[in-house]
Amino acid sequence: MSADIVFAGVVNGLMAGGVYVLVAVGLTLIYGVLHIINFAHGSLLMLAMYAVYFLFRKPLGLDPYAALPLVTAGAFAFAYLLYRGVIGRFAHGKDENILLITLGLSIVADNAALFFFTGDTQTIDVSYAGRFLQLGPALIPLPKLVSFLASLLICALLGLWMAFTDTGKAIRAVAKERQGARLVGIDVENIFAIAYGIGIACLGAAACLLMPFFYVSPSSGHAFVLIAFTTVVLGGMGSFAGALIGGLLIGIVESLGGLRFGEQLGQIAIPLVFILVLLLRPTGLFGGR
């Protein structure tokens, strides 16, 4: 492979990695605070992508970027209620049980999508989809650049929010020391639901950023769930910095894997990285324990 192709591959991978960061930040936040593995993460992203798709279609015709605040808020509200209504009731039993419950929810979501929206692949046509930006030998589609920058910006804002607001501090307190947080008067159950809501709100934002250059089908959730888990495991479960570095790395690995091994076999990079990290360094790159 020539250096130009590798460079273009890395740039493209970084662009894709931006969105993975956003998806993974949600997953890692939920894990870090609630200590649950949210297997429904991919399916909820898929639902958010459908939301973007239907908002874009007539009669609303809402641009995906304009829809971002709406979809993000909607995802937060949906997830808050989902946690209060279903997940929160069972979240603190055995670790596998909550995994199975979120698996059950993902089966319901995937098949509800299949039933109502059919299995067809849906895309949206935005006017700016065909614009490119030249960066050395690499051509970057404009929507990918936007998604990359916006993802990092949203992550930075989330980080600041976690660091400086009262709710953010309460979330970190609950993540560190549940009992202690309760003792100082934090409504722990409410914080759990908010953390779950924010984790899924990240997916709402990711869906808006993805749709201008990606497609959605009922099985999209499945495509993303392993990517999200790989990112989080690579970075270290519960680590924000890990999700950031992990997401970008995964994007690059996926892109270069595709270049080196072709479209088919290149897909193997993600599950392989997942397996190798779990076998060789289960704490990930930035995992504390």
Binding site: I37, D95, E96, I268, P271
Partner: peptide, 22 residues
């Protein structure tokens, strides 16, 4: 590697994906 519970469940999923892609 000491994988238990959810981690074991997820790694089996990844193994199945590797086999499928191969």
């Amino acid at each position: 590697a000491g994988l238990r519970g959810s981690y074991f469940a997820l790694i089996t999923l990844a193994f199945a994906e590797v086999f499928r892609i191969v």
